[in-house]
Simulated assay, not measured.
Amino acid sequence: MPQVNEQPLTGGNANAGVVRAGDTVRRPAGPWTPAVHALLDHLHRAGYPAAPRPLGIDEQGREVLTFAPGATVWPERFGLLDPAARLARVARLIREFHDAVADFTPPPDAAWNVLIPPDGDEIIAHHDLAPWNLVVEDATDAWTFIDWDVAGPGTRLWDLSYAVHGFVPLSANPAFRREDRQAAARLRLFADAYGLDDEAQRRALVPLLWERSRGMYDFLAAGHASGRQPWATLWAEGHGDAWHGDAAYAEERAELWTRALLD
C-alpha cells in the first residue's frame, strides 16, 4: 500500500508506479538508473538548471529525484510556447544541456535504457526532449526537463531534431499543425537560438526532421508486433499513424526547411 503522503503522478506513457512524496518523486528503478543518476549529478555540479537532482534509492528500491513543481506544457498549456522568446528559451536550455554534458564521462558499467538505436555517441542525449517532458512553474519561472530514464548515447542533432518536432511543432495533425511559413520561421528561430551556426550542421539537421519521426514509428511498430507495453497500446491508440504522418509531412517540406535554415 502506498504511504499516506504519496500521490500518484499521472501523464506520460510509462508512469506506472510513479509517485510524489513531499518534495521528491519516487519511481521504479532499472538497470539504467545508476548511469542516469551519474548524468544528473554531473548536470547539477555543472550548474545546469533544467534537470531534477537525483537523491538516491529509497527503502523500496525506487529511485528518488527532486520534484519539479508546476505542470507540463503539453497539451493544455502548449500555447505558452507560442511567443518567440519562449520558444527560443527552450532551444537555449537544450543547448546548455548539450554543452554541460559534453565533458560527462559515464560510469564504466553504464547500462542505458536504449529504445531506439542511437545515431552515434557524441554525447549522452536525453532522447525525449518534448513538450510533455517540459515542466513550467509560473510562480518562480522555473523550467525543468523531466523523464531522463531513456537518456543514452546519441548526437546533438538527433536530440535537437526530436525537440524541433515537438516544440515548433512539425506535425501533420490539424490540431497542432502550423501554417508552412510559420512552421519554417519557428524552425529557423529554434536553430538560431540553439546556436546551430555551422551550415553543414543545418543541412544535416533537415533529413533528421523526418528520420527521427520515422524512427518512432518503427519503434512503435516493433512494440505492437511483440506486444511490449506500453508501446503496443500506444500503437493501438493510433500513435504509430501519427508519427508516420508527421514523418511524411516533414519530408514533403524538405526544401522549405532547407531554405528556412540557410537563407
Rank of each mutant, 00 (worst) to 15 (best):
F167E: 09
Y249M: 10
G56M: 11
F219S: 00
I116A: 02
G17P: 01
H44K: 10
N133A: 09
V114Q: 07
R212D: 07
P118A: 13
A163S: 12
E211F: 05
P174R: 10
D197Y: 01
R212A: 11
L129F: 13
A125Q: 07
R45Q: 13
L39Q: 09
R27W: 07
P2G: 00
E137L: 01
P52L: 02
T105M: 02
G61L: 10
P107G: 03
L65Y: 02
D128M: 08
R95T: 01
R92E: 10
F67A: 11
P49I: 12
Y162C: 00
V4Q: 14
P207A: 07
D119M: 11
G30L: 03
G227L: 11
T140L: 12
P54E: 06
L80V: 13
T155N: 11
A125K: 05
E237H: 08
E237Y: 00
D23C: 08
G30R: 09
T144K: 03
Q229T: 13
I146F: 05
A68R: 07
E6F: 12
Q229C: 02
P8C: 12
R89E: 13
F104K: 03
L39H: 09
W132Y: 11
G56L: 08
D180N: 12
P83T: 06
I146D: 03
D192A: 15
T10S: 14
R228F: 12
G154S: 13
A38F: 10
R92Y: 01
E96P: 00
R27M: 12
R27Y: 09
V135T: 04
A68H: 10
R77D: 14
F104T: 04
A142L: 14
R188T: 12
A222K: 15
Q7D: 08
S213T: 06
A84I: 05
T72P: 01
Q7T: 14
S161W: 05
G154P: 01
W132A: 08
P169F: 12
R27H: 06
A225C: 00
G22R: 06
R45L: 12
P118K: 04
A222G: 08
A221M: 15
W74I: 00
W143F: 04
A102F: 10
L170S: 03
N113R: 11
A139W: 02
D82C: 05
G240S: 04
A191S: 07
A172P: 01
L256H: 02
A204T: 10
P28V: 05
T144A: 09
E179V: 15
T10Q: 13
Q3R: 14
A151E: 09
I116H: 07
Y162Q: 08
G154T: 02
Y194H: 00
A222L: 15
A204F: 10
E96D: 15
E255W: 12
